[in-house]
Design a protein around this nucleic acid. Structure first.
Length: 109
DNA sequence: GTTGTGACGGGTC
DNA sequence: CGACCCGCCACAA
């Protein structure tokens, strides 16, 4: 864990891609991993977990493949998730019971 | 070099 | 639907 690690090369690539997600859209960990040439969505999640860049890297626009919100600030389930949802809604993303309609908001490169 | 882990994903039961 | 398992890859110990 450790939330004060230095960004590894891979992590920086993740930040780069995530920051390219247009407003009002979302992407998945798996797709981001693919965009980087890997298959590990977990590796992407690890990079975002210690996300030292707040606005540049809108981690709230990154969700699980099934449309469910992954985590936020290292919390898998908690009140912080609600904040993430509120942010997405503010961008125009519709969320139902913590689930996003991927067929409409999933962004791909 | 080896082991365990994880903000995941897909398949099976 | 949920529970379970396996594969995946980067990273820390």
């Amino acid at each position: 864990m450790s939330a004060n690690d230095k960004p590894s090369i891979f992590a920086q690539q993740v930040y780069q891609v995530v920051s390219r997600i247009p407003r009002g859209r979302v992407s998945t960990y798996g797709d981001i991993a693919r965009a980087l040439g890997t298959r590990s969505a977990q590796a992407v999640g690890q990079a975002l977990r210690c996300n030292p860049y707040a606005p540049e890297v809108p981690c709230h626009r990154v969700v699980a493949r099934d449309g469910k919100i992954g985590g936020f600030f290292g919390e898998k389930e908690g009140d912080r998730i609600a904040e993430k949802i509120a942010l997405l809604r503010a961008e125009g993303v519709v969320i139902e019971s913590g689930n996003i309609d991927m067929t409409l908001f999933r962004h791909t490169w």
